[in-house]
């Protein structure tokens, strides 16, 4: 186990992708743009030994979608790579070929937020029920639950 990642190290490796800041001890955040995520992840893996993907957090802040890739490695520092996606066209190249665990998290985000990961080998429904209407993404801020009918009418919505 090596020591924690230094801010300078991260800056020299990832400065070119966006702003780097130390959030608190052993948490470093990098803000970048969607097109550069793959390259940034690749460099983080190669130069900073960040080979363990903890989580891809997705958020809807009302104006755009935010994705944060949390990475760690033998140094145990959490490196967060954050991006924003436009609401109109939420599309993102997949990272499941660089980091295999990303596959399952991407499917989850696709299901709950409707963010499409282009190039994902198996982007199918994973979380929601099979009778869930297409095109409704419950974790979006503007989504409101609809009342449902009582038994016997599985999957039918009431107006």
């Amino acid at each position: 186990m090596s020591g924690p990642l230094e801010l300078e190290q991260v800056k020299s490796a990832l400065e070119r992708f966006g702003t780097v800041e130390q959030v608190r001890s052993n948490r470093i955040k990098v803000k970048t743009v969607p097109d550069k995520v793959r390259e940034a992840l690749f460099r983080a893996q190669a130069l900073l030994a960040c080979d363990h993907l903890i989580q891809i957090s997705a958020m809807d802040n009302g104006l755009s979608f935010e994705l944060i890739y949390h990475l760690t490695g033998p140094h145990r520092t959490v490196l967060a790579i954050a991006i924003e996606l436009p609401r109109e066209r939420p599309e993102m190249p997949t990272t499941s070929d660089i980091l295999p665990p990303a596959g399952i998290y991407e499917r989850q985000i696709y299901d709950l937020f409707g963010i499409v990961f282009t190039g994902h080998p198996n982007l199918k429904r994973i979380i929601l029920s099979e009778d869930w209407p297409e095109g409704e993404y419950p974790m979006r801020k503007d989504w409101k639950p609809k009342p449902r009918t009582k038994p016997g009418s599985v999957g039918e919505e009431v107006k």
């Binding site: 989580q55 957090s57 997705a58 958020m59 802040n61 665990p101 399952i104 998290y105």
Partner: peptide, 14 residues
């Protein structure tokens, strides 16, 4: 505003 939970089982499924 947002809470995102990643459970250990999901990480181990792969």
């Amino acid at each position: 505003e947002r809470i995102d939970i990643r459970t250990p089982t999901l990480a181990n499924w792969t």
